[in-house]
């Protein structure tokens, strides 16, 4: 075989692998030489460019119920075929088959270093699970679109296999993988904006360059049952740090936070400063209590309104911070505060 002919392995479930229907969904992974079922069409589409060297067939229930064994065995069978490219499915709108195809692509890419492509209906639950790890070509809901789906999978797969740079999800025809990269468009953004607006006004339904996520609502915490016995902590995104910023918390796009003991004499401008690129810090540097209100909290403590002010405060600089970094910091800080015995926290922003 000429070295330019690409070795392609396909993954199919029991149904498309022509073993049987739901009653054979417990089928263990099996290797078939050459193409099976839709693999014949795949071979036709590949033509002289590639050869379907083998097909791994596995029951949907087995793959999803016995994940560890199924993964190990499928990986072994695929590795034995020494493929240059793995195509899984397409799974269309079949839920368990979609999860299996996503996992096979992840295994091929992450464990074997082989490019892999699958196809699924965009509304499939497996898309949300695997879109970051797998190249998923959008398909219709069922096998009537087998030819279109395989055509797209082959085109993208051959490109990935050749190591050609991709020109983005929309242009290459796969579902966005949760990564955005800068490119240079033919026209500057101001020109694009006016053109897109005119398209929208003319009812031409232009494609947005950015699709926004829907933010999840954060559930409200249960109220403190007895404030006069509670330990209350102070946290801030205003960037209050000991003079000199010993933890080197970034003033913008922060990835770090600090935990600082509150001195017995309170927060003084000699000991603390604000490190933050997003607001005028003069007032805080003159009196750090205006950002982290230790003076007021100590007064409330003395009056018995609150049980106790927590002995340390947590601080980072919240400007440009990536939400997932902020969420991770919040998890760590919350867990630390719980261990330290704080029951509630007051968050001061700027």
């Amino acid at each position: 075989m000429a070295s330019s002919v690409i070795r392609v392995a396909q993954y199919l479930n029991q149904f498309f692998g022509q073993v049987g229907g739901e009653e054979r969904a417990d089928l263990r992974p099996e290797l078939r030489p050459g193409p099976v079922g839709p693999g014949l069409l795949l071979q036709e589409l590949l033509g002289a460019r590639g050869q379907v060297v083998g097909t791994v067939v596995c029951g949907d229930n087995y793959f999803n119920d016995c994940q560890e064994e199924a993964r190990t065995r499928v990986q072994e069978l695929l590795a034995g075929l020494a493929p240059d490219l793995v195509l899984a499915g397409p799974a269309f709108n079949a839920g368990r088959y979609g999860l299996a195809c996503g996992e096979v692509c992840r295994l091929a890419t992450a464990a074997l270093g082989i490019p892999a492509v699958t196809g699924m209906a965009p509304e499939q639950a497996a898309v949300e699970v695997y879109r970051r790890d797998a190249y998923i070509v959008p398909t219709g809901p069922n096998a009537r679109e087998m030819r279109q789906a395989l055509t797209r999978m082959v085109a993208l797969g051959l490109k990935l296999q050749a190591g050609e740079p991709l020109r983005g999800a929309a242009e290459e025809g796969y579902l966005p993988r949760g990564v955005r990269r800068n490119v240079l468009h033919p026209q500057r953004a101001a020109v694009r904006a006016v053109s897109l607006l005119l398209d929208k006004l003319a009812g031409r339904q232009p494609r947005s360059e950015l699709t926004l996520p829907r933010f999840e609502a954060v559930p409200r915490a249960a109220p403190v049952t007895d404030l006069s016995k509670a330990t209350i902590a102070l946290c801030t995104t205003g960037g209050l740090v000991p003079q000199g910023n010993p933890d080197r918390i970034e003033s913008h796009l922060a990835t770090r936070y600090g935990c600082y003991p509150i001195p017995s004499q309170g927060l003084t401008p000699e000991a603390f400063e604000a490190n933050h690129g997003g607001y005028y810090r003069g007032h805080v540097n003159a009196d750090p209590n205006r950002l982290v209100p230790v003076d007021v909290m100590r007064a409330l403590e003395a009056e018995g309104v609150i049980g106790k002010l927590h002995t340390s405060f947590y601080s980072t600089a919240g400007t440009g911070t990536y939400p997932e970094v902020a969420a991770q910091m919040a998890r760590e800080i919350t867990s630390a505060l719980r261990n330290e015995g704080a029951e509630a926290a007051i968050l001061t922003a700027t």
């Binding site: 983005g168 929309a170 993988r177 955005r180 800068n182 468009h185 500057r188 953004a189 101001a190």
Partner: peptide, 14 residues
């Protein structure tokens, strides 16, 4: 990065 769209730059989904 231009807020007013002076350049051809833009981020796209990959």
């Amino acid at each position: 990065v231009s807020l007013l769209g002076s350049t051809r730059l833009g981020a796209i989904d990959f």
